[in-house]
C-alpha cells in the first residue's frame, strides 16, 4: 500500500514525526529516530552546538530525514522569526516548526504570535508548520497565510495524556485543507493510532519515546501504531453502534401498506 502525503513539496512515507529532546543520549536518540521510520525530525535550534566536535546533535540526525528546526524559547513572533532566520543562516534548511510560548507553567502555545510569525516566515520562503492550541479560526488563518500544515496539541507538552482536544481537532480535520498533525501530549502508541484513525495526517511525538524505559522499542511501537491507524482510516471505520433495539418506539406507528 503506497499512501504518501505531501508537505512543502515533499512526498513523505511516514506519518510519524519525531522530536529529539529529552533523550538519555544523542546515540539513543539516533537509534530511536531510525526505529521510528520518521521522515521528519524536529530539533530545537537552542540545543544545536555547531562548535562541538562530539556533541553536535545535528550529527546524529540520519541523512534521509528532513530536518525541521523548531523555535523553542521564542516568547513572541519576533523572536521566532529571528530563530528561524538563524537556523537557515546556519545551514539547517527551510523547514521550521514555529513554537511561541509565553507560558512557562503549562507550555501552551501563543496562537496570535504564532500566526504573525507564520505570515512573515512563509513570505520569506520557509516551509512553516505552526504548533498551536486547537482553534478552527486560527488554523484557517494559518493555512491561508501559507502554513504547510497545522499542528494542534493533543494535551500539554510532556503530559502523556493523549488526545484531550479530540472534539476540536476533529473539527479541524474536517475543515482545514492543509494536513493536521497532532503535536504534543501523546503518551502511548494507542493514542497516536487514535489520531490517525480519525483522519489526522500525522502525529509528532517526543516525550513518550524519549523517556520510555526502552526508547528504541517505543519508537518502533509508535511507527506500527501510526501505520495501523492510517490503514484503519483508509479502510473506513464502521460506525460505533449501540446494542440493537428490537422495538421502534418512535416509528412503530408506520405500517406497511
Amino acid at each position: 500500500m503506497t499512501d504518501l502525503f505531501r508537505i512543502g513539496g515533499r512526498e513523505l512515507r511516514s506519518r510519524l514525526l519525531l522530536g529529539t529532546g529529552k533523550f538519555p543520549s544523542h546515540d539513543v536518540m539516533k537509534k530511536a529516530v531510525e526505529a521510528s521510520g520518521a521522515d521528519i525530525v524536529t530539533v530545537a535550534l537552542r540545543r544545536v552546538d555547531a562548535t562541538s566536535a562530539t556533541d553536535n546533535i545535528l550529527d546524529f540526525i540520519p541523512q534521509k530525514c528532513v530536518l525541521m528546526t523548531n523555535t523553542s524559547g521564542a516568547r513572541n513572533a519576533d523572536e521566532a522569526v529571528r530563530i528561524a532566520r538563524l537556523a537557515r543562516a546556519s545551514g539547517a534548511g527551510d523547514w521550521v516548526k514555529i513554537e511561541v510560548i509565553r507560558d512557562n507553567k503549562y507550555l501552551l502555545p501563543e496562537n496570535l504570535e504564532t500566526l504573525k510569525a507564520t505570515e512573515i516566515l512563509v513570505k520569506e520562503g520557509f516551509i512553516v508548520l505552526p504548533y498551536m492550541s486547537p482553534d478552527l479560526s486560527m488554523a484557517r488563518r494559518m493555512a491561508d497565510a501559507g502554513a504547510a500544515a497545522v499542528m494542534p496539541l493533543g494535551a500539554p507538552i510532556g503530559s502523556n495524556r493523549g488526545l484531550r482536544t479530540r472534539e476540536l481537532v476533529g473539527i479541524m480535520v474536517r475543515e482545514i485543507k492543509v494536513p493536521v498533525i497532532v503535536d504534543a501530549g501523546l503518551g502511548s502508541p494507542s493514542q497516536a493510532c487514535e489520531c490517525l484513525e480519525m483522519g489526522c495526517a500525522a502525529v509528532l511525538v517526543n516525550t513518550a519515546v524519549a523517556i520510555a524505559e526502552d526508547p528504541v522499542q517505543m519508537a518502533a511501537a509508535f511507527r506500527e501504531a501510526v501505520i495501523a491507524g492510517r490503514r484503519a482510516c483508509l479502510a473506513g471505520l464502521p460506525v460505533r453502534g449501540q446494542v440493537a433495539n428490537a422495538s421502534s418506539p418512535l416509528t412503530g406507528f408506520l405500517r406497511n401498506e
Binding site: S25, R47, E79, I83
Partner: peptide
C-alpha cells in the same frame, strides 16, 4: 551518561 542522563551544554543562544 552512566546514570542514563544526557549532559546539555548548550540550551540557548543570542538571538
Amino acid at each position: 551518561a552512566a546514570k542514563g542522563y544526557q549532559p546539555v551544554l548548550k540550551d540557548w543562544m543570542p538571538i
